Deep mutational scan, measured.
Amino acid sequence: DHWEIRVGDITIHLKDVDEEIIRWVEEALRNGDDLEEIKRWVEEVLR
């Protein structure tokens, strides 16, 4: 699977990601969370 999350001008590409993570990231972006923080979290989860 390949996911693209778009929020404003930001697009995040994710592969082999659980839908729950996608929802979490979308929510975090909508809440204005720091992008670097989100990326770190996702990388942590995917490890």
Score class of each variant (00 low, 15 high):
residue 1 D to Y: 11
residue 1 D to H: 14
residue 1 D to E: 12
residue 1 D to L: 14
residue 1 D to N: 15
residue 2 H to F: 14
residue 2 H to K: 10
residue 2 H to T: 12
residue 2 H to A: 05
residue 2 H to G: 10
residue 2 H to V: 14
residue 2 H to D: 12
residue 3 W to T: 07
residue 3 W to L: 06
residue 4 E to L: 10
residue 4 E to M: 07
residue 4 E to I: 13
residue 4 E to W: 09
residue 4 E to A: 07
residue 4 E to K: 02
residue 5 I to L: 11
residue 5 I to N: 02
residue 5 I to S: 00
residue 5 I to Q: 02
residue 5 I to F: 13
residue 5 I to C: 03
residue 6 R to K: 13
residue 6 R to Y: 05
residue 6 R to S: 10
residue 6 R to V: 13
residue 6 R to N: 09
residue 7 V to P: 02
residue 7 V to Q: 05
residue 7 V to R: 02
residue 7 V to A: 04
residue 7 V to Y: 11
residue 7 V to T: 02
residue 7 V to H: 10
residue 8 G to P: 02
residue 8 G to Y: 03
residue 8 G to K: 02
residue 8 G to L: 09
residue 9 D to H: 06
residue 9 D to S: 10
residue 9 D to E: 11
residue 9 D to L: 11
residue 9 D to A: 11
residue 9 D to M: 11
residue 9 D to N: 09
residue 9 D to V: 13
residue 10 I to N: 05
residue 10 I to K: 10
residue 10 I to F: 14
residue 10 I to G: 04
residue 10 I to R: 07
residue 10 I to D: 04
residue 10 I to L: 12
residue 10 I to W: 13
residue 11 T to G: 03
residue 11 T to N: 04
residue 11 T to H: 08
residue 11 T to R: 05
residue 11 T to W: 10
residue 11 T to K: 05
residue 11 T to D: 04
residue 11 T to F: 09
residue 12 I to T: 02
residue 12 I to D: 01
residue 12 I to R: 00
residue 12 I to C: 01
residue 12 I to F: 14
residue 12 I to Q: 03
residue 13 H to D: 09
residue 13 H to K: 13
residue 13 H to P: 07
residue 13 H to Q: 10
residue 13 H to T: 14
residue 14 L to A: 04
residue 14 L to E: 01
residue 14 L to S: 04
residue 14 L to P: 03
residue 14 L to K: 02
residue 15 K to G: 09
residue 15 K to V: 11
residue 15 K to M: 11
residue 15 K to F: 10
residue 15 K to N: 10
residue 15 K to S: 06
residue 15 K to W: 06
residue 15 K to Q: 09
residue 16 D to W: 06
residue 16 D to Q: 07
residue 16 D to P: 12
residue 16 D to Y: 03
residue 16 D to M: 04
residue 16 D to C: 04
residue 16 D to V: 10
residue 17 V to Q: 05
residue 17 V to W: 07
residue 17 V to F: 08
residue 17 V to E: 02
residue 17 V to G: 04
residue 18 D to E: 07
residue 18 D to T: 14
residue 18 D to V: 14
residue 18 D to K: 09
residue 19 E to C: 02
residue 19 E to W: 15
residue 19 E to M: 15
residue 19 E to I: 13
residue 19 E to T: 11
residue 20 E to V: 14
residue 20 E to C: 05
residue 20 E to S: 08
residue 20 E to Y: 14
residue 20 E to M: 07
residue 20 E to L: 09
residue 20 E to W: 15
residue 20 E to I: 09
residue 20 E to Q: 12
residue 20 E to D: 09
residue 21 I to N: 01
residue 21 I to G: 02
residue 21 I to F: 10
residue 21 I to Q: 02
residue 21 I to D: 01
residue 21 I to E: 01
residue 21 I to S: 02
residue 21 I to W: 07
residue 22 I to T: 04
residue 23 R to H: 08
residue 23 R to T: 05
residue 23 R to K: 13
residue 23 R to A: 09
residue 23 R to C: 03
residue 23 R to E: 03
residue 23 R to L: 07
residue 24 W to Q: 12
residue 24 W to H: 12
residue 24 W to K: 15
residue 24 W to M: 14
residue 24 W to L: 09
residue 24 W to E: 04
residue 24 W to F: 09
residue 24 W to S: 05
residue 25 V to C: 01
residue 25 V to W: 02
residue 25 V to A: 04
residue 25 V to I: 10
residue 25 V to D: 00
residue 25 V to E: 00
residue 25 V to T: 01
residue 25 V to Y: 02
residue 26 E to D: 06
residue 26 E to P: 00
residue 26 E to M: 15
residue 26 E to C: 13
residue 26 E to Y: 11
residue 26 E to H: 13
residue 26 E to K: 14
residue 27 E to Y: 08
residue 27 E to W: 12
residue 27 E to V: 09
residue 27 E to F: 08
residue 27 E to R: 10
residue 27 E to T: 11
residue 27 E to Q: 12
residue 27 E to N: 14
residue 28 A to Q: 08
residue 28 A to M: 12
residue 28 A to W: 06
residue 28 A to T: 11
residue 28 A to N: 04
residue 28 A to V: 10
residue 28 A to I: 13
residue 28 A to Y: 04
residue 28 A to E: 01
residue 28 A to R: 13
residue 28 A to L: 06
residue 29 L to R: 01
residue 29 L to Y: 04
residue 29 L to W: 03
residue 29 L to T: 01
residue 29 L to Q: 01
residue 29 L to I: 13
residue 30 R to M: 11
residue 30 R to L: 12
residue 30 R to A: 15
residue 31 N to M: 04
residue 31 N to I: 03
residue 31 N to Y: 05
residue 31 N to K: 13
residue 31 N to G: 05
residue 31 N to V: 05
residue 31 N to E: 06
residue 31 N to D: 01
residue 31 N to S: 06
residue 31 N to L: 12
residue 32 G to R: 08
residue 32 G to N: 07
residue 32 G to Y: 08
residue 33 D to Q: 15
residue 33 D to V: 15
residue 33 D to W: 15
residue 33 D to C: 15
residue 33 D to T: 14
residue 33 D to G: 10
residue 33 D to L: 15
residue 33 D to E: 13
residue 33 D to I: 15
residue 33 D to Y: 11
residue 33 D to R: 14
residue 33 D to A: 05
residue 34 D to C: 15
residue 34 D to Y: 12
residue 34 D to L: 15
residue 34 D to G: 09
residue 35 L to Q: 07
residue 35 L to T: 04
residue 35 L to S: 06
residue 35 L to P: 09
residue 35 L to R: 04
residue 35 L to H: 06
residue 36 E to Y: 05
residue 36 E to T: 07
residue 36 E to D: 12
residue 36 E to C: 05
residue 37 E to I: 06
residue 37 E to M: 10
residue 37 E to S: 14
residue 37 E to V: 07
residue 37 E to D: 13
residue 37 E to G: 10
residue 37 E to L: 12
residue 38 I to W: 03
residue 38 I to P: 00
residue 38 I to T: 02
residue 38 I to S: 00
residue 38 I to Y: 01
residue 38 I to V: 10
residue 38 I to F: 04
residue 39 K to G: 05
residue 39 K to C: 04
residue 39 K to P: 01
residue 39 K to R: 14
residue 39 K to M: 15
residue 39 K to T: 08
residue 40 R to I: 06
residue 40 R to M: 08
residue 40 R to H: 07
residue 40 R to C: 01
residue 40 R to V: 03
residue 40 R to K: 14
residue 40 R to E: 05
residue 41 W to G: 01
residue 41 W to I: 11
residue 41 W to S: 02
residue 41 W to H: 11
residue 41 W to Q: 02
residue 41 W to Y: 15
residue 41 W to F: 11
residue 42 V to N: 00
residue 42 V to C: 01
residue 42 V to M: 05
residue 42 V to I: 14
residue 42 V to R: 00
residue 42 V to K: 00
residue 43 E to V: 04
residue 43 E to F: 04
residue 43 E to G: 01
residue 43 E to H: 05
residue 43 E to K: 02
residue 43 E to Y: 06
residue 44 E to W: 03
residue 44 E to F: 02
residue 44 E to Y: 02
residue 44 E to L: 04
residue 44 E to R: 02
residue 44 E to Q: 04
residue 44 E to G: 01
residue 44 E to H: 04
residue 44 E to P: 00
residue 45 V to C: 08
residue 45 V to L: 15
residue 45 V to F: 15
residue 45 V to T: 07
residue 45 V to N: 08
residue 46 L to E: 01
residue 46 L to N: 01
residue 46 L to Y: 03
residue 47 R to W: 08
residue 47 R to S: 15
residue 47 R to Y: 03
residue 47 R to Q: 15
residue 47 R to L: 15
